[in-house]
Write a protein that binds this DNA or RNA. Structure first.
Lengths: 191, 191, 191, 191
DNA sequence: AATGAATGAGGCTTCATTCAT
DNA sequence: AATGAATGAAGCCTCATTCAT
């Protein structure tokens, strides 16, 4: 593996960390990360003062990539349903195509190493969904739900969909379609 | 006969592991586990040959407790909706009341240490939901879904509900009711 | 394996220790010894206060067995050559037929655990050879040698002979005959 | 380039291991070895991946030193007797002057940790003696002996000689002379 | 800035020995 | 007396981090 030059090194390390964490959990050693990145052990610490800092950076990085993937070409003017479907579909696709970042993100999210501030930055993505949903509520299209519940519902069902696709990738399209039907069904359910 | 292996000690160790894993992740040390259990470090290894074996035992134990909690007083004769609601409600309640086992179970499930056979034993609980759902399908009450999808939907929304309750415990009852409404809405959604 | 009753237990333990030490070295665990002996871990310590004490007892026991084997039917009245040959032959035979005790004895001899007094008891066997040799010296049959040198020569060449037989057991008789010829040749060499 | 692995440190560690094994047996702890070497415990493992690997390296190292000592100034053109005497004398001297390596070599040789290949490398030294002896055989100077027997005879008597000198160092020269007389007497003995 | 050897704390596990049964 | 669980001190090795080159 060619040694990437200064600018890329950071990215190499983050990519390596993603891969290695996904495979071995957060307990994976920094030395495995650096060797996977094709970088010396010491270098890791010039880019990240601490393993924890690396983990925090990774968390931010993956969230950003995810947000990019989900928000790209967002159909701002389309109907609520279409906009929710966009988020759902893009999220699921990203997850299926990027299993390592997905797993790493989950591991990191569950750990105690994410600084409070960092975590706060995070919820943005599904908060968007909440805003969207609230808008729909005001238009009387759907029932009201407590804050976060709509976004978390979409998130939960999207992740479930990814896992089903992991097990049976050939049915990906089918699962994806059904998945969103479940989301919409849930959000529009009457009391 | 010598002093018999005490069931109490074993339980102490599992309880300590649950607590310690929930707080520090699976990387928590055996020495922290044993001291939390009020037992010498050596003793941990007379009850579990290996840390991995402890983790596997913990996994089985928690799943069993969860199954007990969910299946107790199961209303075998009630309607599909009521039976699903029973599972949902009991699952959510168990999760809210037992945050440490819930977290530990999640951590263990995501790790690589669960022996294949052990994992296989596991899915039983939500497979029950699938069976139940299939029955409803045959009665034309609900739309057909691929295997697992119904069970996983209920599971995903139940876990989401637990997390919302964690953040705002006072609304527990409300979240729980809404949560199941989402489940039912999802499962009965029309194409 | 039937649990031997009180009197035999000690012997069982010594036999097990012999076997286990021969296979794994002195670092072999007491628990392996006791289980090999078909005895509980605790019992070992009622027969031997300490692992070191077991080792010392083993040392004494094997030396006694060896002395028995070598001194049995000793031809007190035969020529010096015949008496030396008797010792050589019996020693080699014992070693070849009892590889585990032989190995164990060697390991124990090299360790630091043999109490000084115990070690002193030991040299008796080859000291006999020295006495015999001195007698021959006085009869002008052979050249004088410093104390111990004759006995140690016989011992060294006997052990070498055992090792050659280990590698090529079919030639045992041949090695044994040649071995003694070397001993006699050495001891009768002229300056 | 970073700090290079220092040959000195490696030698320190091997020297410390030699000393410590000679005193306490192979069970001596890696921590005692590293502290004796004046090095952190971690460092030991940057030079030797494993304690076993250290032991194997030590075995090779000592054998090489011994071979150097014995083969230096080897009188290639001298008589068989003189060449054998050279080997004997140098071996005994080395052993007497280097008791720790001698003891360590013996301990290691008896253990189960020497990789087969490593052990094979080893026999070279006394195999040389065998070759030399065979040459003499062909010149009708001495009686034939099975392979290895001549070399092992010299080895056995040399080691015996070292032990006698250990006990009574003032007689070293005398033992050494007598020792070789025994060797020569043994090897030239008539049937 | 990059490298990788050096460090020593700490992790999992084994072991000799003790003690409750 | 016999059993084997309980103990806690090591033992080997790994790891995050520092530092010489």
């Amino acid at each position: 593996m060619a040694r990437p030059k200064s600018e890329d090194r950071r990215e190499s390390l983050l990519a390596a960390a993603t891969k290695v964490f996904a495979e071995h959990g957060l307990a994976a050693s920094t030395s495995l990360i650096s060797s996977t990145a094709g970088v010396s052990e010491g270098s890791l610490f010039t880019y990240f003062k601490t393993k924890d800092e690396l983990v925090n950076a990774l968390y931010r990085e993956i969230r950003l990539e995810l947000a990019d993937a989900v928000l790209a070409n967002f159909p701002r003017k389309a109907s609520v349903r279409q906009r929710l479907e966009h988020v759902f579909t893009k999220y699921v696709s990203w997850g299926v195509e990027n299993p390592a970042p997905r797993k790493a993100l989950k591991l990191v999210s569950m750990s105690n190493v994410i600084a409070g501030e960092t975590r706060a930055e995070g919820g943005v993505l599904f908060a968007e969904v909440d805003r969207l949903y609230k808008e729909a509520t005001e238009q009387r299209r759907v029932q009201a739900l407590p804050t976060h519940m709509a976004g978390q519902t979409l998130k939960a069902l999207a992740e479930m969909t990814m896992e089903l696709i992991d097990r049976d990738p050939e049915q990906a399209a089918n699962y994806q379609a059904l998945g969103f039907r479940l989301v919409w069904g849930a959000l529009t359910s009457k009391p």
